[in-house]
Nucleic acid binder design. Structure first.
Lengths: 216, 216
DNA sequence: CTCCTTATTGATGGTTACTCAACAGTAGGG
DNA sequence: CCCTACTGTTGAGTAACCATCAATAAGGAG
C-alpha cells in the first residue's frame, strides 16, 4: 500500500485531500462503484481513516457529491447585473460548459435520479434543482409572473429536459452532434415555451421576452 | 430458511418464479438494495441457484428491470387504429396510469438514469426511450414531418420532462397535487411545443394539430 | 527532553457476492 | 420394480468490502 502523504495533517487538510482523491476516482468510476478502500488507496491512507472523518461509505459519497454540486452551482450562478434574459442564457451556457468539461463528474450529480435507494443522494439532487428553480422563479416574479405550482412543476421538468439532452448530446460523437450554440438555444427557448404552457397561456414565448429584457 | 417450492422445477418455471419474487421485493425496496440472498429467501430457494440461472447479481437485476420494462411498454403501446393525436394522448394517459399504480416498481425503470455505474441498466433505459421515440417519429413522419437529429433530441428530452414531472407529481401529497387530467394535458402539449421548437418553427403547436387528427 | 493530545493505523468482525464439488429428485431402460 | 444417467439444487467455503476499536506514533507545549 502506498503512503503518499507521509505524516499527520490537520483534519481540514486531510478531509480535503480525501475528497480530492475521491473526486479523482469519480472521473473514471461511477459513484456507486467507489469503494472506501479504493479511495483510501488513492489518498495514500488507511481505510479506517475514512470512517473516522466521514462516518460511513454513504456519508463519504454524499460529501463527494455535495462538493461537486457546490462547484457546479458556483459556475452556473447567475449574475444579478445582467438582464433576466441574459441571466438565463449565460447560466445555461455555463451549465453546458461545465458538464462538457468533466462529463463523468458532473453527470454524477446531475443525473443521480437513481431510484436506486440512496435517499440522501436524491435529496441533494432535488436541492440543486430547487436552487435553480428559485433563481428562475425569482426572475419571473421580477417580470410580473407570480410563482405557482404549475410553473414550479414545469421548471422542474425543464431541468430534467436540459439535463437529458445535454447528456445525450455529450454521448454523441462530435461528428454528428449539432452545434453547441444550437443546443444552448434549444435549452433556452424550451424554458420560455414550457413556462408559457404552465401558465396556460396560448401565446408565443416572444410575448414574454420584452418583459425579461430590462435589467432589474 | 423457508423452502416454499418443494422440489425441482423446469428451468423456465424456476426462472420465472425467481423473477416474480424479485419483482415483489421491488415493491418495497429499491433495486440497488435488493440482495441475492433476499431474493433467494423470497423465492424459497438457495442463493447459489440464482447464480446458476442468472450468473451474477447485476444480471439478475438487469433481468428484473427488463421484465418490468417490457410490462410497461405493453401497457403504453399505442393503438394504430386511433388517430395520431389520440395515440399520443392515450399513451401518455396509460403511462401516468401505470406509473401511478405501482410507483416504486415502474419508477425503478423510468428513473434509472443512475449515472451510478450500471451501464447495462442505462442501456435498458435508453432502449425504452428509443422505443417511445420510434413510435412518435413514425407518427410524425406519417404527418409529413421527417425525422431529424434535432427532433430526436427534443423527443428524448421530452421523455425526461414527462418522467420527471410525473415522478414529482407522485411525490406530492394528493391534497396539493394538480388534477391528473391537467398533468396529462401538460405532458401532451409540451410534446407538441418541444417538437415545434426543434423544427425551429416559430408557430404555435395548434398549427400542427390538424395534420395529426386524421387517422392513418 | 518529556508529556499529552490526537491523527492514524492494523487487527478484527460481520455481511454479501460468488464458486464449486457433492447431493438428490426425476425420467428412461431393463 | 430397480438401476442408472442426467441435471436441478444445495451448502460449505472464499474473497471483497463496510465498519469498529484499541493500540500506536507524530508533533507541539512546557
Amino acid at each position: 500500500m502506498v503512503r503518499s502523504s507521509g505524516a499527520r495533517l490537520s483534519p481540514a487538510d486531510r478531509k480535503a485531500q480525501i475528497l480530492t482523491a475521491a473526486r479523482g476516482l469519480l472521473e473514471v468510476r461511477a459513484i456507486d462503484a467507489i469503494s472506501v478502500e479504493a479511495v483510501a488507496e488513492e489518498a495514500g491512507v488507511s481505510p479506517g481513516l475514512l470512517f473516522h472523518y466521514f462516518g460511513s461509505q454513504r456519508k463519504l459519497r454524499q460529501a463527494v457529491l455535495r462538493a461537486v454540486a457546490d462547484e457546479l452551482l458556483d459556475h452556473v450562478r447567475p449574475d444579478p447585473a445582467l438582464s433576466l434574459e441574459e441571466q438565463l442564457r449565460s447560466s445555461v451556457e455555463a451549465f453546458v460548459e461545465q458538464v462538457s468539461r468533466h462529463p463523468s463528474v458532473y453527470l454524477a450529480v446531475v443525473r443521480l435520479t437513481t431510484t436506486g435507494g440512496n435517499a440522501e443522494a436524491r435529496a441533494l439532487h432535488r436541492a440543486v434543482r430547487a436552487t435553480f428553480t428559485d433563481w428562475i422563479t425569482a426572475g419571473l416574479t421580477g417580470a410580473g409572473i407570480p410563482p405557482s405550482p404549475r410553473v414550479a412543476l414545469a421548471l422542474d421538468g425543464w431541468q430534467a429536459f436540459v439535463e437529458e439532452i445535454v447528456a445525450t448530446w455529450l454521448d454523441q460523437p462530435t461528428s454528428v452532434r449539432m452545434d453547441r450554440a444550437d443546443l444552448v438555444d434549444l435549452c433556452e427557448r424550451s424554458c420560455y415555451q414550457l413556462v408559457m404552457l404552465a401558465l396556460d397561456d396560448a401565446g408565443s414565448w416572444e410575448q414574454i421576452l420584452p418583459r425579461l429584457r430590462r435589467s432589474i
